[in-house]
Design a protein around this nucleic acid. Structure first.
Lengths: 338, 338
DNA sequence: CTTGCCAGTTAGATCGATCTAATGTCTGAT
DNA sequence: ATCAGACATTAGATCGATCTAACTGGCAAG
């Protein structure tokens, strides 16, 4: 059992006041070096453990932040989470994690709990149904928050995410160069900003080349959604030759679904993803996708949040990180001539 | 800006004392129903936000727990984390997450920080180099903790993980039935309990059938480790026909490495994993593996921890969940006859 | 000799909840 | 009429830090 050792005990042991010990803990320049050394010895001698809860009552800041992601079993968000965790660790912070599964109620419950714990800020990948009003309430309550991957329409503040529109333009033009003329787009049932930007990027690129917009397959951006998209694609009278998926996980599902129907991915159908999670290089054929460096995005989001916490008055920053085209076997070397 | 609304303000608004409001917050039976209703109205009217930090100073428990995993980018641990998060959410708890990357120093730093935050308990997948003494110190400090996936030798307390020994026995016998006689085992460079049990399960099963132990390829249980193992396997004078990998991610790396060397997985070499992460069904060929239901393990670990927090005197429980053999294409239909 | 200042230290108030022990109020039994 | 006991509520102490404002002793300037 811990014997509830407080500043008082340390102070008694070192022969100083509690205030002095408190200042030593924070390495204040007010305290003379020899005193500091003596107090530090006592700290170790009595086995003192800092009580951040108590400190929080008077001091400002808890050295904690919240991280809310919609899913964690998607390797993309797992990497992002790892990036946040590492960046926070080296800044002396620690994160509360909550997985919302895109359910606004879970998100709201988690945010309330985080506010009760007086987190210094929140990194939020907003659930798809989050409204601008929800965000406004948070801002009014003085919550420092950085949005990541998705940006709620009508909201304000910091954001870190990939250049979706530009990236999907690159990817679409690559497919056009390969000879594709009929496109399908799988995923993006939930119309959050990332999906809108991605679909917009594809549509714009097609229009630039005088092509019709992609055939939209409204499924969720999950493995299962990808499999459903494969089924839907095969049921179309005139099958598109390129299937662009909202993210890598969806593409994995689609590839399995297509293969189950006897189609050879990369020859009969080109498939693409978004994100370039490690599995994209490991599957067969390799997945052509857009590298979005989730770890980096997590780190940048953390940097933005810590910056915001340090100076709430700073102007908002919206960071759009470039995506890189990664060509692998899943889109083959050219469209099959009928 | 939040105007620091405390119990005092609510009490004034409702015309009662702070103590009464405090009791209403916790839905105490001591307070009469009409008073409760009135106070609850005031709570909402003044926009009160509970301050858990302050409460913690007197009350016992913070409604927080720590979750320390060695990696999160492995889908297995991502699923496990999702299970923990969901289970905690419905119990009114929230988790601090820290990713240790198997570095004991990061683990130690995170645990210190969690102790400073006075978490009610910790779910820990111990970094490989964790010693029994480390665990003993934590126990002495009164830390409630549940180990998950790995169990530090010489430690005590609760644990939740899969039946590694039995599971790998099943898997090995399946390969033996297919005609394999020469086995390699990739992974398990870090000798924590899970790796030891898995290797033990293979060795035991082989011995039961009068076969020599697996050729041990000492790599890390990562995608990269798997690729290294593939290279090592191909360099062996007499190549084993079955490559058993320490987990699915290692197997994915191994499959890529073998394919790069012109070998057909499932025909030339049988490959197996452990865990059955979703990608195992999606890769080509599908990966024969052991389903370990990570989400369930996360939920069980959470249950054990909450139980332990509620009653620290309970006897320790070591939960070993069964693994199910999942046969897919990666081990083919029989060993190739030379 | 007094004053002012500085560096180093500290007593005591304070943060916002909960806990303890006590208070007042209303029954119903003696 | 008095008392025991249950019920509902509360004043004030308390948790363990930090903050504010004040206090020391020593030294230089006036």
């Amino acid at each position: 059992m811990s014997d509830r050792i407080t500043l008082k005990h340390v102070a008694a042991h070192a022969g100083v006041s509690r205030a002095t010990v408190s200042l030593v803990l924070r390495d204040s320049p007010l305290i003379a070096a020899p005193t500091k050394a003596r107090v530090r010895q006592s700290l170790a001698a009595v086995g003192y453990l800092y009580n951040r809860g108590a400190a929080t009552m008077r001091a400002t800041g808890t050295q904690t932040v919240g991280l809310l992601v919609n899913q964690i079993d998607n390797p993309f968000f797992a990497e992002l989470t790892a990036g946040v965790s590492a960046a926070l660790d080296s800044a002396g912070y620690i994160a509360f994690l909550s997985v919302t599964e895109d359910v606004v109620e879970r998100q709201a419950r988690a945010i309330l709990r985080l506010r009760e714990h007086r987190v210094d800020g929140v990194i939020l990948c907003p659930a798809a149904a989050t409204t601008g009003q929800d965000m406004a309430h948070l801002a009014e309550a003085g919550m420092k928050l950085v949005q990541v991957m998705r940006f709620v329409e009508g909201s304000a503040g910091d954001y870190a995410g990939p250049q979706n529109t530009h990236g999907l333009g690159l990817l679409t033009e690559h497919l056009i160069r390969l000879g594709h003329r009929h496109f399908a787009y799988a995923g993006g049932m939930a119309l959050h900003s990332a999906n809108r930007e991605r679909i917009g990027g594809v549509t714009d690129a097609l229009r630039r080349h005088g092509l019709a917009g992609p055939h939209f397959l409204p499924v969720e951006n999950t493995r299962l959604g990808g499999m459903q998209a494969a089924a839907q694609l095969c049921a179309l009278p005139q099958r598109p030759t390129a299937l662009m998926c909202g993210n890598d996980v969806t593409a994995f599902g689609a590839m399995v679904g297509l293969q189950q129907r006897g189609l050879v991915v990369g020859r009969d159908v080109a498939v693409t993803g978004v994100g370039d999670v490690p599995e994209a290089a490991a599957c067969q054929p390799g997945l052509t996708t857009l590298a979005a460096s989730p770890r980096r995005i997590g780190q940048e989001a953390t940097r933005l949040l810590l910056r915001r916490i340090a100076d709430p008055a700073l102007p908002a920053e919206r960071l759009a990180l470039p995506m890189r085209l990664v060509v692998r076997g899943s889109c083959g070397s050219g469209v099959a001539q009928p």
